[in-house]
Amino acid sequence: MSSAHVTPGTVPGPKLAAHFASLEVQKHAARLGMWLFLATEILLFAGLFACYASYRFLFPEAWAASSRSLDLTMGTINTVVLITSSFTAAMAVHYAKEGKNKMVGHMFVLTLLMAIGFLVIKFFEYKHKFHIGTLPGRYYFYEGIQLPGAPLYFTVYFASTALHALHVVIGMTVLAFSTVRAYRVGDFNANNYTAVELGSMYWHLVDLVWIFLFPMLYLV
């Protein structure tokens, strides 16, 4: 396990923890750990997807009707916002590799702004639902859809969007740390960008989940 290929050039690298064989292995471990964590996130949402699939299977009419009561325009805007925020997060990794710390910060600020935009739009969607009464379970009082299974749709809707929104908030916290580090410390470079990479991977997962939630909820 030679360490000859560890440090190309003079770029300062991150600290090698004592128990790893080399920096490469350390980074590999960090990535693998992140992928495992993302796998747990995927399975977390899988439980909700299973609820969704089962009840969609049982109540197709209520599902279609309830889905049409959602605001597709807002949903589409939110999807575009989240995909774009994912793009800026990917660009942050790109700039981190080039050592352009300012740009990393800018990209993450854009991502965070779009995340806030996403949550604001979501808030207005929620507010509308509280107003007209398309609410989960026994709180449902919407007269427009009187089909068995409709309250259940909104249980699934609120459970999955709320869990997703929670992940948006967690992702924002993670990215905020990297943003501050990029502006204040500015030590990201071709050899040292694991924090940016892992944070942006988490953000892509948030995007990935929404990519599936959007057609499931809005386009049945």
Partner: peptide
Amino acid sequence: VALYFMHLSEHRGANRLVFGVSIVFV
């Protein structure tokens, strides 16, 4: 998103396996 934004196309072995297996279990 997984292949290019998350760089799965550049990762190897174990990472792809983890992602693939998680989808299988879903």
